[in-house]
Each structure stands twice: as structure tokens, then as C-alpha cells.
Simulated scan of single mutants.
Amino acid sequence: MPVAVLGIDDDDRVCYWGPGARDLFGYDSADVLAKPGAVLFADAPPGTPDPCARLTGLGRTQGYWRGRLPARHRDGTAFDCGFRAFSVTGSGGPSVVMVLASRSDELDRVKTNLAFLDALFETCPIGLVMLDEDLRYVHLNQALADMDGLPIEAHLGRHTDEFMIMSDGGEFRRMLRAVALGGAPVVGTLVGMRPRGHPDRDQVRSVSFFPLSQAVGSRPGWAG
């Protein structure tokens, strides 16, 4: 999600302008630095506080404030924007209200996606897992923990080898490495194993994996 970072000084003038701020508001730094912060906000209805003054005032008095205000792009387009504001004071220098801003529709999209993923991990009867590039557990659901016979917390930060007794000569690890190196996702491959939490029970699992980094553009890893 694109996030704008900017700073507003004691006179409510823009004093810091991060790259994301240009993308969100349309101004190059030379066009907005030292200008009134009010230029970034849509006009307030008559009788209501100036949005920029309200933002900086709340950031200074509350220490940290978040909320939504109508913003304005350089082309004049108004849009609903989510803001987070907090006061920063340097050694012997004036205070600055640092501001993080994102379009409200983007914030809503992320919240919806997170709510869906939380519900999926909580209720899905299929085992779901996220692994980092070293095949350590980052996230898994209760269904997979039940298959392994060990709690979710016991998995986190540990390697898959610690939970699976394999007799495939390392083929499972090679399969995951191949996916990470640009190979096609694995879909519905049958893998035989014995979970360490159920040492007397052989299992055959149908597994599917895809590279997580290609899906979200973040840290390397796998989901399956």
C-alpha cells in the first residue's frame, strides 16, 4: 500500500517531503516545501476547523493521532485520506509533526484483505502455511498444527525438518527450492511423511506451494 511521509513545522508549513508524498499528492518537493500545509487538504465546510491545523494540533496535543480527512491532489481532485500524525522534537530544535498518509480506499482494501486472511486461517479445514526462505515456519493454521500433532507456537521459527520424518532422500526440500528459483508452483503433489507429533502414524499429504515473494513483492518465502 503506498504511504506518503511528510513533515509539518510549527507554522503549519511543509518541511519534509518523502517520495511517497509526491505520488499521493502530485507535488514535487520544490513545489511544496515551505508552503502552507493547507494546500494538501480540501476546503473545510464553513464554521469547521482548518484540516491542516486540526491535524497538527491533534498530533501535538495527543502525541499520536490517526483519522481520516479530505485531502486534495495538485490537480484539484479531492479524495478521502487516512492520516497518522505524531510530534517529533529534535535536540534543542523546533518540533515537527510527522505525518503518514494513504488513500482511504487503499486502507479499506488492505483491511478487507487482512480480515479475509484472518478468517481463512481461523476456519479453513485445509492446512495452510507460510515459510521463509530457510524453510522456517512463519505462519500456519490450526488444521496443519493438528496434522503435525504439535501446537502452532511450537512451529514458529523452526524448520520443516524438525516436524517431518521423511524418507525421500531430500526430494521434498528440492521441490520447494525449485519453486523458489522460478519453477512452476507445485499443485496437488503427494508426499509421504511421518509427523514427529504423531510418531506412530504415517501420512500421505497432497501439497501445493507457490513462491510468496512473487505474490506480495516482499521477503522471499513460500505459501502452501
Rank of each mutant, 00 (worst) to 15 (best):
G76K: 07
G63E: 03
S87Y: 13
W65P: 02
T77L: 12
R74M: 11
A85E: 11
R60D: 06
D80F: 07
G93I: 00
G76W: 09
G93R: 01
R84W: 13
Y64I: 03
T89F: 02
R74N: 05
Y64N: 02
G63S: 03
F83V: 15
Q62H: 13
G63D: 05
R66M: 05
Y64T: 04
A71R: 13
L69V: 08
R68W: 11
P70K: 08
Q62W: 12
V88A: 00
S87V: 10
R68H: 11
G93L: 02
G63T: 01
F79S: 08
D75K: 05
R84F: 09
T61W: 04
D80L: 14
G82R: 15
G93W: 00
R72G: 04
R66F: 07
F83M: 09
Q62L: 14
G67W: 13
Q62K: 12
C81K: 08
R68G: 10
F79I: 07
P70L: 10
T89R: 12
V88W: 00
T61D: 07
T89D: 02
G76D: 05
D75F: 05
F83D: 12
Y64G: 01
D75A: 05
C81L: 06
G76S: 06
A71D: 11
G90W: 00
R60T: 04
A71W: 14
V88T: 03
W65F: 15
F79T: 09
F83L: 15
G93F: 01
G92M: 00
Y64W: 10
W65I: 01
V88Q: 00
G67I: 10
C81G: 10
F79P: 15
G92H: 00
G92C: 01
R60Y: 11
H73Y: 10
F79N: 06
F83W: 15
R84P: 02
Q62P: 03
D80P: 14
G82L: 14
G67M: 06
T89Y: 02
W65R: 01
A85K: 09
R74D: 05
R60V: 01
H73P: 12
R68D: 13
T89C: 02
A85M: 12
G92Y: 00
G82Y: 15
G82P: 07
S87H: 14
F86G: 05
D80M: 12
D80I: 06
R72T: 06
L69A: 04
R68Y: 07
Y64V: 07
R84E: 13
Q62C: 02
Y64A: 03
T77A: 13
R66T: 11
G76E: 05
A85R: 13
G93K: 01
H73G: 04
G76F: 06
L69E: 11
F86K: 02
G76H: 08
A85H: 12
Y64K: 05
G82W: 15
G90R: 00
G76C: 03
F83S: 09
T89N: 01
R72F: 08
P70I: 06
R66Y: 06
R68V: 14
R74H: 10
Q62S: 04
R66L: 03
H73I: 07
V88P: 01
T61A: 08
R68S: 14
R60F: 07
Q62D: 04
P70A: 07
A71H: 14
F83Q: 10
F86I: 01
G90H: 00
R60I: 02
R84L: 07
L69T: 09
L69W: 12
G90D: 01
D75Q: 06
A85G: 09
S87A: 10
